[in-house]
C-alpha cells in the first residue's frame, strides 16, 4: 500500500505529473500568505490615510506597539499564561472526564438510556446561562473559569467518544466474544484502539470549545487573561488592546489546533 521508497526512475510523464501537483500546492500556500498580507496591508493603509478611524478600528502597527508596551511592562506573558493555563487545564479535564463518562455509557446500555435525555438537554443549554451560579458556587478565581471551560467542552467529548465506541465494527465485537473476552478486555484490546480516530476528532473539536469556554469565563469573572484584556479594553474604549488580545488569541488557538493536528498525524496512520 504505502510505497514511499518507490524506484526513482519515473517516466517523464510521471515527473511532469509530480511537478504539476507540487505547483498546485505551492499556489495554495502562496495565495494563503497573500490573503493575510493583503488584509493587513489594506487595513494599515486605510488607517494611515484616515479612511477609517484608527481609534475605533485600530491598525496592525498599533497592535504591534501595544504588544511591545505590554511586553515592556511585563504583563504580556502574564495574561497569555493565565488564559493558556485555564484553557489547557479545562481542555485536559474535559477530555479525560468526557472519555471516562463515555466508557461508562458504552459499558452499560441501561445507564446510557437513563442519561441520554439529560445529555441532550445539557448539550443544547447555553452554558453561559450558568454564569451567575458558577460565580456564587465556585467563586471568582481561576477555578470558576476552568469549570466553565470544562462545562462548555465536556458534553461534546462524551457524545463524540460514545459515538466512536458504538461505531466499532460488529464483526470484530463478535470475534472478541467468540474468544471469550470480557468487557474490560474488549475495551482494552478493541474499543480503545479502534476509536483512536474518534479521539483525535474529539480533541480537535474540544480544543476549539475550550477556548470558547475560557474566554467566556473570563468575560463573566476575571482579574487577568486575554478575555479580561478584551473586556477591559472595550469598557475603557482602548480598541488597540481589544484587537491585540484578539490577535494573540488567534495565534494561540491556531497553534494549539496545529499541535493536535500534528499529534494526530503521528498517532493515526
Amino acid at each position: 500500500m504505502k510505497n514511499k521508497k518507490e524506484k526513482p526512475n519515473y517516466s517523464p510523464e510521471h515527473i511532469a505529473y509530480l511537478k504539476k501537483e507540487k505547483n498546485k500546492k505551492l499556489i495554495v500556500h502562496l495565495s494563503r500568505v497573500f490573503v493575510l498580507v493583503a488584509v493587513l496591508g489594506v487595513w494599515e493603509l486605510f488607517a494611515q490615510l484616515k479612511v477609517i478611524n484608527p481609534f475605533i478600528t485600530s491598525a496592525p502597527s498599533r497592535v504591534c506597539t501595544t504588544i511591545a508596551s505590554l511586553y515592556t511592562d511585563g504583563t504580556l506573558f502574564y495574561h497569555i499564561g493565565i488564559t493558556l493555563m485555564e484553557t489547557i487545564v479545562g481542555f485536559v479535564l474535559a477530555v479525560v472526564l468526557g472519555y471516562a463518562v463515555a466508557v461508562i455509557l458504552w459499558a452499560s446500555e441501561t445507564v446510557r438510556k437513563v442519561v441520554e435525555p439529560y445529555i441532550v438537554v445539557l448539550n443544547s443549554l447555553p452554558k453561559i446561562a450558568l454564569g451567575p451560579l458558577i460565580i456564587i458556587w465556585i467563586g471568582t478565581g481561576y477555578d470558576s473559569i476552568i469549570f466553565m471551560t470544562v462545562l462548555v467542552s465536556i458534553i461534546v467529548c462524551i457524545m463524540n467518544m460514545l459515538a466512536g465506541f458504538i461505531a466499532v465494527d460488529k464483526t470484530k465485537l463478535t470475534l472478541m466474544k467468540s474468544m471469550g473476552a470480557g468487557r474490560m478486555t474488549t475495551l482494552r484490546k478493541l474499543i480503545i484502539p479502534a476509536s483512536l480516530p474518534a479521539l483525535m476528532n474529539t480533541l480537535k473539536v474540544a480544543v476549539g470549545l475550550a477556548w470558547i469556554g475560557s474566554i467566556m469565563g473570563e468575560y463573566i469573572v476575571s482579574k487577568a487573561g486575554l478575555g479580561y484584556l478584551i473586556v477591559y479594553g472595550g469598557q475603557v474604549f482602548k480598541l488597540d488592546l481589544v484587537m491585540t488580545a484578539t490577535f494573540i488569541l488567534c495565534l494561540l488557538a491556531g497553534g494549539m489546533y496545529g499541535i493536535i493536528a500534528l499529534f494526530e498525524k503521528k498517532v493515526v496512520k
Binding site: D169, T171, K172, T174, S178, M179, P193, A194, L196
Partner: peptide, 21 residues
C-alpha cells in the same frame, strides 16, 4: 475457535500481533 465471514483483522496490529490476539 471461530472463523467469521470477514477476516476482522485489527488494522492497528501487525499480522503477527493479530495472530497473538
Amino acid at each position: 475457535g471461530y472463523m467469521l465471514q470477514r477476516d476482522a483483522l485489527f488494522p492497528w496490529r501487525t499480522v503477527e500481533q493479530n495472530i497473538f490476539l
